[in-house]
């Protein structure tokens, strides 16, 4: 079934301090649906990793945050969009420890472990969209 959506709200990711704003927006949404403190922290941390990826590797873009409901559950969906170079090898990029050199190689794989749903869509030369969902338990 198609989840009912609330929002969405978008924020540009063009500079360093935009990453902080994205974290704050995601936290506001997570608090609104009353995610547990641990789940809020996990989601915000994942959002921070992904927003930084959008900035550093994607050359900037935007984040979209919304409340979704499906099958009687409520959750937060956050997606990160860029029109950067894209990721040539998705499975490699998702492997633990893989890094293009600027990080620890935990960004994508680490973020995936912190959320309930994770979807990565990337095309070389076109850009990347990463979508994550955290459901209220």
């Amino acid at each position: 079934m198609t989840p009912r959506s609330d929002g969405p709200e978008e924020l540009p990711i063009r500079a360093d301090d935009d990453v902080v704003r994205v974290r704050q927006l995601v936290r506001t949404y997570a608090q609104q649906v009353k995610l547990s403190l641990v789940d809020q922290t996990k989601l915000v941390t994942a959002a921070s990793e992904l927003a930084r990826n959008t900035l550093v590797y994607g050359g900037g873009g935007f984040a979209r945050v919304e409340i979704i409901t499906a099958d009687g559950r409520t959750g937060i969906r956050a997606s990160f969009h860029d029109e950067g170079p894209g990721i040539p090898d998705l499975s490699l990029a998702l492997a633990d420890g893989w890094s293009s050199g600027k990080g620890m190689g935990l960004g994508l794989s680490g973020a995936r472990r912190l959320v309930d749903e994770f979807d990565l869509d990337s095309e070389v030369g076109r850009g990347t969209v990463v979508m994550v969902v955290k459901w209220k338990r």
Binding site: L37, V38, Q40, K42, T45, D96, L106, A111, R113
Partner: peptide
């Protein structure tokens, strides 16, 4: 370190 931060760090792999 806050407990929620510690739990998240471990899961993140740091």
């Amino acid at each position: 370190m806050r407990p929620a931060v510690a739990i998240t760090l471990v899961e993140l792999g740091l």
